[in-house]
């Protein structure tokens, strides 16, 4: 009985931007393993490489060096289109700036990932409405982003992230633009998807209060992992 591979396995990952004098080593030999079902928070000073790491984890960007295995598959050897397939089938994104399509209803925004999954229209509608209901926005389905508050927009973005039942949600500062009450709503939603749907959550945050929702906290400093452990003990 071979052990099941970790969901995410990074070994010796580096990411270098630019070249020559302008070279920036955003990640410098990062090793990390995340198992399915974990809720991981990533913290660290500005510029320490958190977003860079998230983009690589989310297959939006490729590392300069090192090996990244996602569900046992080496991502480094994949084409752009193959990475798109991984994102489509296994990863949901939540961004600090929401990144919803303008002049497009909440429902259509949430449907977007399902279009590329090739799901038929009627089923898409049903799934998207379902996802909106899970984030408590079923009555806002036909509103445009411009008609929603920041917290509501972020909940639409979360509905879009989870509508395709991904294995993992990548959330880069999901509460960065929100007040504490709104932030807690978001964190409770993420916790629910982690506990009830078994989705793995990887989240970058600057707020220790939000990090406490996670079960594991990884600290980045200067592109390296400085500590990795229980959030309650670290703080």
């Amino acid at each position: 009985m071979s052990p099941e591979p970790a969901l995410i396995q990074l070994s010796g990952i580096s990411r270098v931007y630019g070249s020559g004098d302008a070279e920036v080593r955003a990640l410098d030999g990062v090793d990390m393993e995340i198992a399915a079902g974990e809720f991981v928070a990533i913290m660290g000073p500005s510029g320490s490489g958190k977003s860079t790491a998230m983009n690589i984890l989310g297959c939006l960007d490729a590392p300069t060096q090192g090996a990244y295995q996602f569900m046992g598959v080496e991502v480094g050897g994949l084409s752009r289109d193959q990475r798109a397939l991984i994102r489509r089938n296994y990863i949901g994104f939540v961004f600090q700036g929401y990144n919803l399509l303008a002049r497009t209803s909440a429902l259509d925004n949430v449907e977007l990932p399902l279009i590329y999954k090739g799901i038929a229209r009627a089923e898409r509608r049903a799934l998207a409405l379902d996802a909106l209901a899970k984030v408590g926005l079923q009555d806002r389905a036909h509103h445009d982003p411009s008609e929603l508050s920041g917290g509501q927009q972020q909940r639409v973005a979360i509905a879009r992230a989870i509508v395709g039942q991904p294995a993992v949600i990548m959330a880069d500062e999901p509460t960065g633009n929100l007040d504490t009450a709104r932030s807690r709503e978001i964190m409770e939603l993420l916790t629910a998807f982690n506990v009830e749907d078994g989705m793995t959550i990887v989240m970058v945050t600057h707020e220790p209060d939000m990090a406490e929702y996670a079960h594991r906290l990884i600290h980045f400093i200067d592109g390296r992992i400085a500590s990795d452990g229980d959030p309650k003990q670290v703080n």
Partner: peptide, 19 residues
Amino acid sequence: TERTREIGIRLAVGAQEGQ
């Protein structure tokens, strides 16, 4: 500009270049 962001969003949720 607007279209580029839109394309970024579509790519992020799993669209391939050809699509």
